[in-house]
């Protein structure tokens, strides 16, 4: 049962990935693309967690943690660039 659930979950998260990617390509404005990128980071995180359960390996967790942090830092940096035209004040 767990395996079936995992496979359905993989499909759903992949679809989510595609939808976010579509928004990333379509835009229409910079904040939309940043939001899409941020969502892509979180979707990747979801995929990694699922993969960790599927393979029964805790190793993927470290990658998930790093991706969560990079995603946040990236989003904040891009937003600050939009707000001030500059990242480090």
């Amino acid at each position: 049962m767990l395996n079936t659930a995992l496979q359905i979950a993989f499909a759903l998260v992949s679809l989510a990935f595609l939808l976010s990617f579509w928004r990333l390509l379509k835009g229409p404005d910079a904040p939309d693309r940043i939001l899409a990128l941020d969502t892509l980071y979180v979707n990747t995180l979801a995929l990694l967690v699922l993969l960790g359960i599927y393979r029964g390996s805790a190793l993927y967790f470290e990658a998930a943690l790093l991706i969560a942090m990079m995603g946040f830092v990236g989003t904040v940096a891009l937003c600050k660039y939009l707000l001030h035209g500059d990242i480090i004040e």
Partner: peptide, 20 residues
Amino acid sequence: LSLLILAGAMFTFIGSLGLA
């Protein structure tokens, strides 16, 4: 576990659906 995983995937999907 299956319920949690399905609910999680569903919400992730709906979030992106909203985005699109």
